[in-house]
């Protein structure tokens, strides 16, 4: 009886702590969201926690080309680049991760080490080579350059993640398929892939989110709107003499759309990807 009362008290204070934590951490995000729906007058007035007005004006202004910023372009670039990167990961990443996971071959240890090592290299350390290469090959302001950079940034990461998932697929599965007359490729496609869909989904979601959120290389490798992505578009507002906070908030909301969508729809996969990517070393 006494311990039950204690437990109730304990769980109540736990709820209180969690709620407080969530409110504090999510409040600034909430502030961005409501700002994006406010009118100019309300944005530049006393701060209001519950918007008195509701308007899509900020989004209209952001999505129509203004001051050399074309967010419809940025949106297209971000979507296109992140999707292609994710597709490349799915093809290259799954096949090579499967080979790493289920086959022993010469140099596999060294290659696995390279995968980990490439996660240690800070991307900022490679901006000069990447800039020079893309300058020489006339690849600045192209999707190709940004997709290529993303291969360095996220292919090893995806292979690492996927290997973890393939390791959990018992070796008997593809082996018995082989006995039944399947080739290696058939065994992979027919038996292994269907058994690791959640893992593949996690990897795809993480790679899409991370390449969408990435800022540094699009900043360095683009100078026009041709290949510029959304995070760079958001950053661009800071340089304005008069910062239009309403517009910037709308741009920020657009930039965090994948975050919101994935959290609401695919959070289980997002979290399982995060965990298997990090927990084993």
């Amino acid at each position: 009886m006494k311990s039950r009362k204690k437990n109730l008290l304990k769980s109540r204070s736990a709820y209180a702590a969690i709620l407080l934590f969530l409110i504090i951490t999510n409040l600034p995000i909430y502030w961005m969201y409501i700002t994006s729906f406010k009118t100019q007058e309300e944005v530049y007035g006393n701060p209001t926690w519950v918007p008195k007005s509701f308007t899509m004006q900020n989004y209209k202004e952001v999505l129509s080309a203004q001051q050399g910023r074309n967010f419809t372009f940025y949106l297209r670039n971000s979507l296109g680049i992140s999707s292609i990167v994710t597709a490349i990961m799915l093809v290259l990443g799954t096949t090579s991760a499967y080979a790493f996971s289920h086959f022993r071959f010469r140099g596999s240890g060294l290659l696995l080490f390279l995968i980990i090592a490439s996660r240690i290299i800070p991307p900022i350390s490679l901006i000069i080579p990447y800039f020079k290469i893309s300058e020489t090959l006339h690849l600045r302001d192209t999707w190709f350059a940004l997709i290529w950079v993303n291969v360095y940034l996220y292919l090893p990461f995806a292979v690492w993640l996927l290997k973890e998932f393939f390791d959990t697929v018992p070796a008997e599965l593809p082996e018995s398929a082989r006995v039944d007359g399947c080739t290696n490729a058939q065994a992979f496609v027919r038996v292994v892939l269907p058994n690791s869909l959640p893992g593949i989904a996690s990897a795809a979601i993480l790679v899409f989110l991370l390449s969408w959120n990435h800022f540094l290389f699009p900043l360095v490798l683009t100078s026009t709107e041709k290949a510029r992505t959304i995070p760079v578009g958001v950053y661009d507002y800071v340089g304005d003499y008069f910062v239009n906070w309403g517009n910037m908030a709308a741009a920020g909301v657009i930039a965090s759309m994948p975050a919101l969508i994935f959290l609401i729809l695919f959070s289980r996969w997002l979290i399982s990807g995060l965990l298997s990517g990090a927990l084993k070393e």
Partner: peptide, 21 residues
Amino acid sequence: VWALYPWAVPPVVAGFIFKWF
């Protein structure tokens, strides 16, 4: 899930959120 939100927004947007807040 909701504790994860600040991690999932682009870092640039995180900076903006603080700047504006």
